[in-house]
Computed example of a mutant assay.
Amino acid sequence: MLRRVLARRVQRRCRSREEDPAEHAGLIEETVARTQRAGLVDDARFAAARLRGLRRRGTSTRQAQARLAAKGIDAGTIAAALADEEEEATGTEDGAAETERKAAWAYARRRRLGPYRLTEARPLHRERDLAAMARAGFSYALAKNVIESEADADETSSDES
């Protein structure tokens, strides 16, 4: 991402000065390498921190992978961040499933889907809520479980874990 930002700035500056941006490619690579050696740019730490934030907001694994990739993080680093996340959640039987479940509940809460709707409106919006969960990248089984549950079911199952 640093490389893209620097390239954009160089192009903008070169346009105003009518220079060739390719002349500065070596300088961009040198700057990126220097910041990595100094520890100022660390894709693994960035991916882990960004993943934690995305999960708190209720982002599914699929969507988190796509968002991290859009930020320029390579697939290996994303896989490592997801593995670290799963390892942190190993207090449960299946850490990845538990993390995904918590993210689904956070998404439903944030978007006021399923159990967070008014009780009389829930049946009318069931299909719409399931579709929203599917578009967010959650499996049908998990989305159905969340949408058809009661709002306090999330807190109860979290306390049991």
Score class of each variant (00 low, 15 high):
114 G>M: 03
34 R>N: 09
153 A>D: 15
116 Y>A: 07
98 E>D: 15
7 A>I: 05
102 K>V: 15
34 R>F: 15
10 V>G: 03
71 K>Q: 12
55 R>N: 02
76 G>Y: 13
14 C>K: 02
41 V>I: 13
30 E>T: 07
21 P>E: 06
109 R>S: 04
86 E>Q: 10
114 G>N: 06
149 S>W: 05
65 Q>N: 03
149 S>I: 01
74 D>K: 12
38 A>V: 06
20 D>Y: 11
117 R>K: 12
143 A>Y: 01
98 E>P: 02
17 R>L: 10
79 A>C: 14
136 A>W: 03
66 A>I: 09
46 F>T: 05
133 M>N: 00
84 D>E: 10
96 A>M: 03
47 A>T: 04
117 R>Y: 07
115 P>G: 14
97 A>Y: 01
82 L>F: 13
16 S>F: 11
30 E>I: 11
74 D>A: 11
128 R>F: 08
47 A>D: 02
45 R>M: 08
105 W>I: 04
157 S>A: 15
63 Q>T: 13
104 A>H: 01
159 D>A: 10
148 E>N: 15
33 A>M: 05
140 Y>T: 12
95 G>I: 01
32 V>L: 12
89 A>D: 09
88 E>G: 09
59 T>A: 04
31 T>F: 05
64 A>N: 01
33 A>C: 15
24 H>G: 05
49 A>T: 08
64 A>H: 00
46 F>D: 03
126 R>W: 09
83 A>V: 13
72 G>P: 02
33 A>S: 15
47 A>R: 04
3 R>P: 04
94 D>Q: 07
117 R>I: 09
44 A>V: 09
77 T>F: 04
43 D>P: 04
154 D>Q: 12
155 E>N: 07
153 A>G: 06
131 A>I: 13
69 A>G: 12
113 L>Y: 04
45 R>E: 05
44 A>Q: 15
18 E>A: 08
3 R>Y: 10
78 I>V: 13
68 L>P: 00
104 A>R: 01
123 P>C: 02
44 A>D: 06
47 A>M: 07
97 A>E: 04
104 A>W: 00
71 K>M: 15
1 M>N: 15
19 E>K: 09
152 D>H: 11
18 E>R: 14
48 A>V: 13
133 M>C: 11
101 R>E: 01
116 Y>V: 05
125 H>Y: 07
39 G>L: 06
62 R>A: 13
101 R>I: 00
150 E>Q: 14
85 E>F: 02
55 R>L: 05
70 A>I: 10
101 R>P: 01
156 T>L: 08
142 L>A: 07
77 T>M: 02
133 M>S: 01
24 H>M: 10
73 I>Q: 00
64 A>Q: 02
119 T>N: 13
37 R>K: 15
100 E>T: 02
89 A>G: 09
127 E>Y: 06
72 G>I: 02
39 G>I: 03
35 T>V: 08
132 A>K: 12
22 A>Q: 14
137 G>E: 04
156 T>I: 14
75 A>F: 06
65 Q>W: 03
11 Q>R: 09
110 R>D: 13
14 C>M: 03
155 E>G: 06
154 D>V: 03
34 R>L: 06
32 V>P: 03
142 L>I: 12
13 R>S: 14
153 A>L: 10
